[in-house]
């Protein structure tokens, strides 16, 4: 089985190319974006990296509140921050 060299996802509509094996949380950090706005409007990014804190939650292909540090990027994936 051959792995593609790069994958392309979109973050808030903007394409980003990443290496296979990259999680969505890492991709969003590579893009220099934040994951979500907190209930008082603070910008937040990943904290624990292990699925515990929920700070990295975003929408993936329309599914809201996904813990993106536990999800690998797939070609064509649509990620929305703050969702």
């Amino acid at each position: 089985m051959s792995m593609p060299d790069r994958l392309t996802i979109t973050i808030d509509g903007v394409p980003l190319s990443v290496a296979p094996g990259t999680t969505v949380a890492a991709a969003v950090m590579i893009a220099g974006k934040f994951c979500r706005n907190s209930v008082t409007g603070e910008r937040r990014g990943p904290l624990c990296g292990m699925g515990i804190c929920f700070e990295c939650r975003m929408s993936i292909n329309g599914l809201p509140h996904s813990r993106t540090c536990q999800v690998l990027c797939e070609n064509g994936m649509e990620v929305r921050t703050d969702a």
């Binding site: 094996g21 950090m29 590579i30 904290l47 624990c48």
Partner: peptide, 30 residues
Amino acid sequence: RERFLPFPGWTLPNVMGAGGLQALVKSGLP
């Protein structure tokens, strides 16, 4: 899991757990 303690600015993006940053780097963050 790691223990986190509050201090001014601890909720800023790029303030992360020690194991937390390591996990992100292992999963593709350069």
